[in-house]
Design a protein around this nucleic acid. Structure first.
Length: 297
DNA sequence: CTTCGTTCCTGTACGC
DNA sequence: TGCGTACAGGAACGAA
């Protein structure tokens, strides 16, 4: 499941293999892959053909590729199972191939492959960045569908103090807040559990009474786990393959809470528990992360 | 305005 | 063996 580190690896791959090239042809093999594109598949391909792709950008789990003509950008979200793959245009078509772009230089093609079709591609207009701090105008533009996505905790625009104040204003639980991309972006179910384990906080802790120190621990936990995953997954973007989907190997080695139900906590030895929350699994240590007296879901 | 439940999708694992 | 069911889950959407 791609979260911020995996998406960043893909961004680097796109930067290396796709930026600067001109689209020759675009093919939409499944309409659901472009369901958010206003105008449908025909308009999507029309906007791409003959257009040149600029520098790859990312905010949270959203990726985008500015287009030289028309002022818009290709926006991509990988959802749960999406992959952006680069390779020999003549190679066999993957079973779940949804969109394919070829380029005027005749080189490697770009393929969007997505088994569960939660991911999508679209062309969208750029709008001013509501979260941006003073910067270059071009840098401060984001695609319209990304405008409500907060900065991620690894980018300089992320404001720790503003995040703390936003949490105190909320009436919800810390895990729900971590998964809310308008407060903090790039955190998914897995890294939320990992960060809370590191911070020794239960997922249902009310955000309104978190202390500054506790919020600092959460942010430190998020940054540590993301940085470690990025370091583990960042080795593959050099290859002729834009890697995604946890193939970094990070999942197998370094997870302390997620997926470890019944296994001993590496800090205290207590068996990790699993709760169902938001129709998803939450893993935590019963001793290190005690259930709050007044939980907020 | 905020909060929260539902929904989309398909492959895999597992119990009976 | 085969069938039914739970599970994986990001985020848009609509309801309260």
């Amino acid at each position: 499941m791609p979260e911020l580190p995996e998406v960043e690896v893909v961004r680097r791959g796109l930067e290396r293999w796709v930026s600067g090239r001109t689209v020759a042809a675009a093919e939409v093999l499944h309409p659901r892959a472009v369901r958010r594109h206003v105008g449908g598949a025909a308009d999507f391909t029309a906007r791409l053909i003959g257009n040149t792709i600029g520098a790859a950008r990312r905010r949270g789990k959203y990726l985008w590729l500015p287009l030289a003509e028309g002022g818009g950008a290709i926006v991509a979200h990988l959802g749960m199972s999406g992959q952006l793959l680069v390779g020999d245009p003549a190679r066999a078509r993957q079973r779940h191939l949804r969109v394919r772009l070829t380029f005027t230089d005749g080189g490697h093609d770009l393929r969007f492959v997505d088994q569960r079709t939660f991911g999508h591609l679209m062309v969208a207009e750029l709008v001013p960045d509501a979260f941006g701090r003073a910067g270059k105008e071009a840098e401060a533009a984001v695609p319209a569908p990304v405008a409500h996505i907060a900065p991620d905790p690894l980018e300089p625009a992320f404001d720790d103090e503003a995040f703390y104040r936003a949490l105190r204003r909320r009436r919800t639980g810390i895990k729900r807040a971590l998964l809310d991309q308008s407060l903090i972006s790039g955190v998914g179910n897995i890294y939320a559990d990992e960060a809370l384990w590191r911070a020794r906080l239960h997922w249902a802790r009310a955000t309104e009474n978190l202390t500054r120190a506790e919020v600092s621990r959460v942010l430190e936990g998020v940054r540590e786990v993301m940085t470690a995953a990025l370091a583990a997954g960042g080795t593959s973007f050099d290859r002729l393959y834009v890697n995604v989907n946890g193939e970094s190997g990070y999942f197998e080695r370094s997870l302390e809470a997620y997926g470890r139900r019944g296994e001993p906590c590496t800090r205290c030895g207590t068996p990790i528990r699993r709760d169902v929350f938001m129709n998803r699994s939450s893993y935590s240590c019963p001793k290190c992360q005690p259930r709050p007296r007044r939980p907020r879901l």
